[in-house]
Design a protein around this nucleic acid. Structure first.
Lengths: 117, 117
DNA sequence: GGATAATGATACGGGTCCGTAACGATCTGG
DNA sequence: CCAGATCGTTACGGACCCGTATCATTATCC
């Protein structure tokens, strides 16, 4: 069954979740950083800089910088690929998994509240 | 009727929409900027710097700077309040309304695709 | 009218990020 | 084994944003 949601409900949901993210003092992630984080945690490994750049349609330095920040926040890690030492593999962390899980719960909770608008 | 969505579906939806936002070359808004934009467009006017700061739980300079950027992007405007000239009223723009509408449609479309996971 | 309060903007030093270009390290193929 | 391709990172000048503190402007209230 497809997920039914009207644009007006979608916008209210989008606002409520973003409000919560801001108010909870979470890191103020940009859309790019969020896309990278969720791709790493939802899609099958391995994840590389080049692969992420291709998926997001941005240049490699953009990914490198985003990984710097997300790494500093503890949301993911980098590791050299020993098979092909040119590659860097992006790995998940416990803190990152918790943050992603929290986001999923947040969206689900607010979706419940939205109900009939 | 409450809106039913599982955390795993919510996360996939969140990722898909963010991927689209990044790929479409939209402005790379932060969570704060998104929260401000949606608040202005979904909640009843008037909107002031102080009011937004209170709602988001951040300081006034944060709002001022976000309004600078969102204004530069043409997504909203500021106008001095003639009733009480200390206040600045944040106003909607055509471009901003279109961007918000687009976001609503984007979420709705991806929600349809999510369906049974 | 003058002290007080309230509003939004600004200054500051420091961090992040941009796009473009170049870089070192590593693998690959003739 | 060495030229070329590929990988991720770094350098650059410029822009944005941070939090804290302070600012000028305007309103309020005795």
């Amino acid at each position: 069954m497809p997920l039914e949601i009207r644009p007006s409900q979608a916008l209210r949901l989008w606002r409520q979740v973003h409000l919560d993210l801001v108010r909870d003092g979470q890191a103020d992630l940009s859309a790019r950083q969020t896309a990278i984080l969720l791709t790493v945690y939802l899609e099958l490994p391995p994840h590389t800089v080049r692969g992420l750049a291709r998926q997001l349609g941005v240049t490699k330095p953009v990914i490198t910088r985003a990984l710097d920040t997300l790494g500093k926040l503890g949301l993911l890690t980098r590791k050299r690929d020993e098979e092909d030492r040119r590659n860097v593999v992006i790995q998940r962390t416990v803190a990152g998994a918790l943050a992603v899980e929290r986001l999923g719960d947040l969206v689900t909770e607010h979706a419940k509240e939205i109900g009939a608008s």
